[in-house]
């Protein structure tokens, strides 16, 4: 069985910027695959190359065993691409919009309307798209991508700019889409989103994929790093470093962001005892590693969306 996607050594340059710098990966059919990276990492450019709307400077892409570039009409009905929310015809209602796009695929109005219901826009069917909220427009955009029942769905930061409730609703929808057997490729700059949704995630920065794996496995690979934090102002950072080093603690990271002082370590016991000795336990929190720590370890810097 051919992979849903295989990308091999793709590169794309814009002037001085090497936006995508030798990216290779495969996505199996039915997988929920994520590309996680901060803004400017090259996620959108990578997606555009996969979708076949941009020709890479170098490298090879196959979708469902076919080359997406140049425009391949055989492939098009089998893929669905979610667009930025404004990519609608002007002055049309939600219903008219999805019916129009559906008709391009030979999909009739009944199915289009059903898809509108499915994303929870049934009561917004008569609203002009210009008058819809960000979350509604985003759901309409996804509905338009799904109306023709594609096997392979591309979603580029679908939840960016949504309020927490809308995000959660959209997550439910995306899980369902994937559970129905569709392969989903999602980009995000939200760590929690990648963690919650993706079967496998690639961490991307400066146009390169740094690491790929199941979110849980990536975190486990950090050798059970634990992040311990207390409220700021109980212990100066320098003093903390001194004491922790003296106590023989193995510190992966130590920082004070003026709200809390945090220590990442594989051996929590000495750290905790130092903090207890100093009577600096106010606001104490101990949690396991997250994707954020994975990113930190891979790049040596904080993850900033």
């Amino acid at each position: 069985m051919t992979a849903a996607i295989s990308a091999d050594g793709i590169r794309q340059r814009y002037g001085d910027v090497q936006a995508v710098d030798g990216v290779s990966f495969t996505v199996e059919a039915g997988e929920f695959y994520g590309i996680l990276g901060p803004n400017g990492a090259g996620k959108t450019t990578t997606m555009e190359i996969l979708e076949g709307v941009r020709k890479p400077d170098e490298g090879r892409v196959e979708l469902l065993g076919m080359n997406p570039w140049p425009r391949n009409p055989k492939l098009l009905p089998r893929i669905g691409v979610q667009f930025q929310a404004s990519a609608f015809f002007r002055k049309l209602t939600a219903r008219e919009t999805i019916r129009t796009f559906a008709s391009f695929y030979g999909v009739g109005p009944k199915r289009a309307d059903a898809m509108l219901e499915r994303v929870g826009l049934g009561d917004k069917a008569e609203s002009l798209t210009e008058k819809m909220s960000g979350g509604q427009a985003q759901r309409l955009s996804i509905a338009c991508a799904l109306a023709h029942d594609p096997e392979l769905v591309f979603l580029d930061e679908p939840t960016t700019g949504l309020d927490p409730q809308s995000r959660r609703n959209l997550w439910d929808l995306l899980r369902d889409i994937n559970a129905e057997g569709r392969t989903v490729v999602l980009t995000t700059h939200y760590l929690d989103e990648a963690e919650v949704l993706c079967d496998r995630v690639s961490i991307m920065d400066h146009g390169k994929i740094l690491h790929t794996g199941a979110p849980a496995a990536l975190i486990r690979e950090l050798d059970d790093t634990v992040r311990i934090s207390i409220a700021s102002g109980q212990l100066p950072l320098d003093r903390a470093r001194e004491l922790l080093t003296a106590a023989g603690a193995d510190i992966a990271n130590l920082e004070d962001d003026t709200v809390s002082l945090s220590v990442s370590t594989r051996l929590p016991a000495p750290v905790l005892s130092v903090l207890a000795e100093q009577n600096a336990l106010r606001g104490l929190e101990v949690r396991g590693a997250t994707l954020e720590d994975v990113f930190l370890q891979l790049t040596g810097r904080e993850f900033r969306a």
Binding site: F32, V107, K110, R111, N178, G181, R182, L197, A216
Partner: peptide
Amino acid sequence: PTTSTEPKVPAQRGGRAGAAGERERVSA
């Protein structure tokens, strides 16, 4: 989905729109 280990089986999708869809088909 985060912890799911059971393999997800791609659903079988037949002729997309079906006979009813054929009737509904509108010209692009």
